[in-house]
């Protein structure tokens, strides 16, 4: 039995470590978030929190719900596949409260963003050298942004505002 007596200090040390481990396990059980491990090695509740972030772009479906007239004009023109907020910017606030003024896009910077001529752009994409093409005249003098082709199709569907 003397071996136990002479190794007594080692058992004390083991006791200290055991107490530390137990304390850690208790803290761990209390502190780890409850949804941790729900789907995998992460906090399951995080998914719903991320999904609940606020929207800024309302989405064209929402715009079209009210602006069906514009949607019709657009559907038959060259910009049929350009969504509303691609030009008008994020308007979820306006969709929630139509009294908020969405403002008008600035054609001077807007049109050239896509249509300024550059050899880097796909060849089949309509491009113009803005200076030569319009000589400073705003694009929407001639082109109706919601249906930009000039001709009977564009005129029939409402024309520029």
């Amino acid at each position: 039995m003397s071996i136990f007596r002479d190794a007594g200090h080692l058992f004390r040390l083991a006791g200290v470590y055991l107490a530390g481990t137990l304390l850690f396990l208790v803290v761990r059980a209390v502190v780890v978030p409850h949804s941790f491990g729900q789907y995998g090695h992460y906090r399951g509740a995080a998914i719903a929190e991320i999904a609940a972030k606020p929207l800024h772009f309302a989405g064209h479906q929402t715009c079209e719900a009210c602006h069906s007239d514009v949607a019709r004009t657009k559907a038959s023109g060259m910009h049929a596949h350009v969504n509303c907020e691609a030009c008008h910017g994020p308007l979820a606030k306006h969709a929630a409260d139509p009294s908020i003024d969405p403002g008008k896009p600035d054609v001077a910077t807007l049109c050239v963003r896509c249509h300024a001529a550059s050899a880097a752009r796909p060849k089949d994409f309509p491009q113009v050298d803005a200076d030569q093409h319009a000589d400073g005249v705003p694009c929407n003098t001639c082109h109706q942004p919601h249906s930009p082709a000039i001709g009977p199709a564009s005129a029939a569907s409402g024309g520029a505002k």
Binding site: G59, N83, E85, A86
Partner: peptide, 23 residues
């Protein structure tokens, strides 16, 4: 990028896809 998780879980597309004029 969250792939606009707050949008795609509501049936909307991402902000970048929504704003892309050429698809």
């Amino acid at each position: 990028c969250t792939l606009c998780y707050h949008r795609i879980t509501k049936g909307l597309t991402t902000a970048c896809c929504e704003a892309c004029p050429t698809g």
